[in-house]
């Protein structure tokens, strides 16, 4: 064994190699880090700073510190005497958005899971065709797809004409310009985001486990609940996040399919930068949304790691 005072040439070269590897890693990471810092962290900092400033009358900000935007979120200043009164209006918008996003996520899962399962069990060549078909809507601009959806579901659209013609309804179903219309739009828009991760998870699934379970007298429902779902969980989680978070900030569907009457968070923020020209309040609304999502994610991650620890024990 060589003495530590004089390291053998082999160890030295290993040391150099490790350093080289570290350098290469830093080099390879730097473009991504630059993009994240320049296009994500920096703009986020600007948003946080703006949320503590005073709005200019015609847009922009006045560089004077103010917490008014956050106060405005929960309280309404009286038109007369500037006294504050609690106002749940903005909370309602957030609540409505959460419910809409939750409904959309659940519906996407209920539709997406059987679809993904079906595709995953197809022979190799057919699989690719189906995955390709799932992505087809993305070849068309979101705005055009949403307007097409509006044309389908509106009172004088083909859906209602067909229902009326078939005698299933007496008056056109009011879907367009309601919260249901918004929900349909969200599901339609984000369904592929659920199907693809689910498919990726189920595709790797070893179907012999299903045979084993049924050999052990598990019923179909039990197999789904105890064998397939737990193993597809990473896909379920990824899909749910990919649907829930963008739904929360959705902006086109509520505007077009909801008739712009019942704002969601995305519209509230957009309105502050367009019609209302209150940049600080728009920034504050964005910061609040981001904080809520981040907290929810942190809680989820902690619970997951705890659950994993419990499993290991």
């Amino acid at each position: 064994m060589p003495s530590p005072a004089t390291p053998p040439p082999r160890a030295a070269s290993e040391h150099a190699r490790a350093r080289r590897r570290l350098k290469a890693r830093a080099l390879l990471l730097s473009p991504a880090l630059l993009v994240i810092c320049g296009l994500l962290v920096l703009p986020l900092c600007i948003i946080v700073v703006y949320s503590f400033l005073t709005p200019g009358t015609y847009g922009g900000v006045v560089w004077r510190f103010s917490t008014e935007s956050y106060v405005q979120f929960l309280f309404e200043r009286d038109l007369f005497d500037d006294t504050l009164a609690f106002s749940p209006a903005y909370l309602q918008i957030y609540w409505r958005s959460f419910i809409q996003a939750l409904v959309a996520t659940t519906a996407c899962f209920l539709i997406g899971f059987p679809t993904a399962y079906y595709i995953a069990t197809l022979p190799e060549r057919k699989k690719y065709m189906w995955v390709l078909l799932i992505t087809v809507p993305y070849w068309i601009n979101l705005l055009i797809r949403t307007i097409a959806m509006l044309f389908l579901i509106r009172n004088e659209g083909p859906l209602n004409h067909a229902l009326l013609f078939a005698g299933l309804v007496d008056a056109p179903l009011k879907i367009a310009y309601t919260n249901i219309g918004v929900g349909i739009g969200l599901i339609y828009t984000y369904l592929p985001f659920m199907v693809l991760p689910l498919y990726a998870a189920i595709e790797r699934f070893d179907f012999r486990l299903v045979e084993a379970a049924s050999d052990l007298y598990a019923r179909r429902w039990t197999i789904l609940r105890r064998v397939i779902l737990p193993l597809a969980m990473p896909g379920v989680v990824a899909g749910s996040l990919l649907v829930f978070i963008p739904s929360l900030g959705a902006f086109i569907a509520p505007d077009l399919l909801g008739g712009g009457k019942n704002l969601m968070i995305g519209n509230l923020i957009a309105l502050q930068f367009q019609g209302s020209r209150n940049w600080p309040f728009g920034s504050a609304a964005a910061v609040i949304l981001m904080t809520i999502v981040l907290c929810a994610l942190l809680v989820y991650v902690r619970q997951q790691s705890k659950a994993r620890l419990r499993q290991l024990r």
Partner: peptide, 16 residues
């Protein structure tokens, strides 16, 4: 200016 601000408040309140 003050009227524009009040209008904006009424408008945001109406749309939400």
């Amino acid at each position: 200016d003050n009227v524009i601000r009040l209008y904006d408040r009424i408008w945001t309140n109406l749309l939400k």
